[in-house]
Amino acid sequence: MPPPLRSRAASQPEAPLLEVVNLTVRFGSPVGEVHAVEGVSISVGAGETVGIIGESGSGKTVACMSMTWLLPSPPARYLSGRITFKGEELRRNDEAQLRKVRGSGVGMIFQNARLSFNPAYRLGRQIEEVLRVQLGRSARAMLPEMVQTLRYCNIAEPEAVLGKFPHEVSGGVAQRVSIALALLSRPDLLIADEPTTALDLLSQIEVLSLLARLRDESGLSLVLVSHDLGVVRRIADRVIIMYAGRVVEEGPASAIFAAPRHPYTQGLLASALQQGDGERLYEVPGTPPDLASLPPGCSFRPRCPFAFDRCVTMPELAPAGATHQARCHLLERATEHA
């Protein structure tokens, strides 16, 4: 069992580095409007690692892509939302500002790193191109730094890797190269969208350890999107659980994993494999809802073992502790009974 990699200082953010307020994103589709993200607010403090957990289609990727207004519109429709980065509002139509933030403020890595490199060029040339655009520096001047950064990311033979095409390296190496590339422009925030999902177990551990080391050594803020609880549990300071486009629970990682308050989170945790557990694995009953035709009221109601009469209305995100929030009517009932 690898050691937990949670950062030592669970930093209490003064002013958040990135703040997303009330983001709503929908997509038009032939079967109706898809409610991808509904009124989501996320804040990421300086040096903080935020884990976002959710099933496929829970809106986590759309929310992340929207952090720098990256989704083309159309087809995406931004109904509401305000994004502040380093105290400055990001305006959706200010291309120059967005390019600057995307280039040097917010780095992003994706699920399939090999596909995030252009198959027509060698890795070295692509890195050069990115650096030239972002930093305006020549590749020759950057070479030592680049090699050093790749070494930092546990690439054993940086020069050899730079001469390879994306399809010539393994997924794990490609992911570490893409992390190195993101680091070279010295971002304040790194968004990792399912960075380990496409990797084998050993590569997963390597990439996760690298992310943890980065967070500890560089003061970088990290947003880690995953459907893998184990991945998030090892790194995140704070955890956000998303379901059907909404945040259903949010709080410090320790609190969420020790005492989840939303039935969905409880189900997720129960379905994660416990060591030495011989019993049949629990699974959250039912399937994720169709985002084009959500049921009225709480989206989780059809799958919830505790659903009761009040669940026909959508619950608000309510405090469930000092820094812990959940979107569930059970919370109110608990306080009423107390």
Binding site: T68, L70, L98, R99, K100, V101, R102, G103, S104, G107, M108, F110, N112, L115, S116, F117, N118, P119, A120, Y121, E129, V130, V133, Q134, S178
Partner: peptide
Amino acid sequence: SAPFIEAARCAGFRDWRIVHREILPH
């Protein structure tokens, strides 16, 4: 909508650069 085009956009590339450096070679 290929991942590497998305990545290029993430890296702050202008549309023009994406078209002539990333798509044209293909």
